[in-house]
Design a protein around this nucleic acid. Structure first.
Lengths: 353, 353
DNA sequence: CTGAAAGCGCTAACAA
DNA sequence: TTGTTAGCGCTTTCAG
């Protein structure tokens, strides 16, 4: 009945072990200046009593909060969840981030924030004041939102910018989007394609430009000149992918292959191709970015650039935790993690006409 | 430079408004006994200073933690994320739970816990000691794990059991799994099927039995006797679905329709059917449970029972928050939320032979 | 190496 | 209707 019953505190441990609070504190925080014998005794009592330090009290005492805050775009995330189109970005982030946090006695709290709204600043300031996280993980498109990075920087909260290519406060953890797009295009060029189209992502995301750049670079390297008509504008959505694909296929000399900057847009390309009675990959090759689950279940399964989302989140968490532990400087060096090109059935040599 | 710079506390607000800490506390907690004029003045200062109460300090003061803890099965969740097969259970839970929490100034923390391990008790006790959440949301199969429900009950922590059919401590929030299976079977019977097979879920989940029961009930109501050979054992996995489907199709008088207790098993049924050159739905109708994204992208898209996961999580969060606010008793009544049968292309009338 | 004291930001209990 | 007094459980000083 007593609501506070059974709450083992540091006091109980201290009393039971016959030492001061301070000594127990030192032991659980793995600090020096405790004799091994005492340390062992305390640890024994801790285990026996099942003592676990109260996180809130710990924070109050002026130490770390053992909390990492992961900020995701509210509208996009909720829309993705509502639609249930199989986007597993958040899941992959949790897979990497939460598991890594758990390894270090940390917790990762996911929070949804409007990136465009006028009150971003207030929203984030409120979250920081309420939670006092030891670090923040920014995901696209927040990673390159100057209002957010500025606030975090001013507050002195260490933070990671996932998928960011820019410099600035915090540190970037990304894959090489430029190179990824380049590899995708190279794959198609190597198959013999000469007319390779590209569908861009939303301008909200800095990586959209990087991918376009990589694509262009591959074409130039292959001695293919600039043909702006081969670049369709998209915003990652299925609808935008449809529109862009239609435009590309309506060209006098349409592409025989398309690199789309998202899975949804690649699926849209598949869709349009089917409407036009174009076979994939015989008449049209398609490569997607992201590699969310749905592309594996597409017909045909899509060749895709696989983003290391879990790895990026884990890496970000690790760096933040290290910094909070004082083990390492929260330096500004960016971390570039490897990506994969997963070749499936949506790419092949072009027909010989 | 100063790490604690810019942290507005209740003191600053009190000083600025020319009132005591207590009065500010009363205002931010919306408690009575504050003159409207004073209240307005304080709220004004709060807004102007951008003050947000520190969660940790609040807990320390002996009040709520404004935290809800959602417990998911570690192995299953991580495996699902790793495989990336499009299971969006956690996403739906977050959609419902996090958004509802945010409405009330709460936060939902997701934690992964081994349900089978000997140390479940320790794991959960540790999480409770560290976090002191105002409530816990249990998801299957934790919802019916007596060790977990027992511990939570003993500790006096209010908790919701999502997808639970049992009585006991906490309260259940579920859909009517029995009825759902019944509706699925009825749909097939109404189409004219007389040989309807069923593939069960894992025995770890209490709802597996409920679904089987519903299926049997529909058959009996249709005047069809018990044929145990029509019931295949599964555990929700694709592999188990394959095995069960093979066994069903190998019967002398094989079913013309199958209700599978999970999407993965339904997809497996599709798979096996294709191997046998059976057309779906012409030769075999298939209904799945869960309605994860992948079933919509299957060929053909699957008719499915859609679980109200987001709604259940939101409802659970709301009840827990209400209880923590003292607005309502954390009563034991179970909440049953409506499900949907989404008819797609995998079900049709049986062939007339 | 160990302990005692003070305080983190807030809220409960009590006074006024 | 308001303000004052204690703590909550822990960690940081600073003494021994």
């Amino acid at each position: 009945m007593n609501p506070r019953r059974r709450t083992v505190t540091i006091k109980h441990v201290a009393a039971e072990a016959g030492v001061s609070l301070q000594t127990v504190s030192r032991v659980i925080n793995n600090e020096p200046n405790v004799r091994d014998a005492v340390k062992a005794r305390v640890q024994d009592v801790v285990a026996r009593l099942g003592y676990v330090p109260n996180l809130a009290a710990r924070r109050m005492g002026g130490s770390r909060s053992f909390l990492l805050l992961a900020l995701n775009d509210r509208d996009r995330t909720i829309e993705g969840w509502r639609l249930g189109e199989g986007d597993d970005w958040v899941d992959q982030m949790m897979l990497g981030g939460m598991v890594k946090c758990a390894e270090h006695g940390y917790r990762m709290l996911v929070e949804l924030v409007d990136t465009h709204a006028a009150h971003v600043e207030r929203e984030i300031a409120a979250a920081l004041s309420a939670l006092h996280p030891d670090g923040v993980i920014l995901t696209p498109p927040h990673s390159d939102n100057p209002v957010i990075t500025g606030l975090l920087g001013a507050r002195g909260v260490p933070f990671a910018r996932i998928g960011s290519v820019a410099d600035g406060a915090g540190f970037a953890v990304a894959m090489d989007d430029r190179r990824a797009a380049e590899v995708a295009a190279e794959h198609l060029l190597a198959l013999g394609h000469r007319r390779v189209g590209f569908i861009t992502g939303s301008d909200d995301y800095a990586l959209s430009a990087a991918r376009l750049d990589g694509y262009l670079r591959a074409l130039h390297a292959a001695g293919l000149g600039d043909d702006p008509s081969l670049v369709g504008r998209g915003d990652f959505s299925f609808a935008s992918g449809r529109a862009a694909t239609k435009a590309l296929l309506a060209l006098d000399d349409p592409p025989t292959a398309i690199v789309a900057s998202s899975d949804q847009m690649a699926l849209a390309a598949l869709h349009v191709a089917r409407e036009r009675a174009l076979r994939v990959p015989e008449d049209l090759s398609v490569i997607s970015f992201d590699d969310t689950p749905v592309v594996r279940f597409g017909v045909p399964p899509l060749t895709a650039i696989k983003q290391p989302i879990a790895a990026m989140a884990a890496h970000a968490a690790e760096r933040l935790i290290r910094a909070a532990s004082g083990e390492a400087e929260p330096g500004p060096e960016r971390s570039i993690l490897p990506f994969d090109l997963v070749v499936r059935a949506s790419t092949a040599e072009p027909r010989e006409d």
